[in-house]
Amino acid sequence: MQIKNLAVSVNSKKIVDDVSLTVEERSIFALVGGSGSGKSTTGLAVLRLLAPGLEIKSGEAIFGGRDLLKIGAEELRQVRGKEIAMVFQEPLYAFNPVLTVGQQIEEVFTAHTDFLGEKRLEETLRLLDIVGIKDPLRVHKSYPHQLSGGMRQRAMIAQAVALKPRLIIADEPTSSLDVTLQARVMELFLKLRDEFDLSVLLITHDLGVVQHMADHVAVMNNGKIVESGSSGEVLKNPKHQYTRELLSYVS
């Protein structure tokens, strides 16, 4: 996927300004930056899911040969969940509290396939197994609040990869987890990348994670990309003052 010159503004104030980046196939692209720098906004803009009031001023999001910012509503719906999926920071809020986790994973199949109930269940259990959940059947029947944070995040990831999307946009997928779990979930992303041949746009402010996982990195500050390149280079050899600042928090 390729984002070109994306600009988003709210009340004519630009919160994403001239952002361009390319997520290559089967690669992990990290978008880092401090709080309020416009990372989430960039991720949501690609799927045209910005909150009312936020407006895409210009730019393109080329994916599979078409511009996601221009296609019709139904075509866009087909892309969402099927070709590009999203993982959120806090699965407790991203799951609907009144439906079971299983019901919600199955909804992806309902929306995009004509699988019957039995097939949906089977697929869902298989997915839960793939993401490393020990007793898929119990998790399937549980409500979100009945699961631990780690299991919820795994379930959310299972939902995201359900239809083998080309790209997953993961918005701080580990920030709500404790340190040991963070590493496991990150490993899961690597495993899924290899298994499903997908690419990941990883939004994070954790440069440690970037170091281990990402192929490319872009650093954002105040809505602008201030530095980008392969992650080894950028982290070893930061050119921009802001990147150095960020790095100084890690070490």
């Binding site: 899911l49 959120f88 439906l99 992806v108």
Partner: peptide, 26 residues
């Protein structure tokens, strides 16, 4: 405004389905 509605949209559910299945039960 709740996040699960946003999540439901990212899954590609239709608006009607989001309203009936995700919002109205609340």
């Amino acid at each position: 405004e709740r996040e699960f509605v946003l999540a439901a949209k990212t899954m590609g559910l239709s608006d009607l389905r989001i309203i009936i299945r995700h919002i109205l039960p609340h």
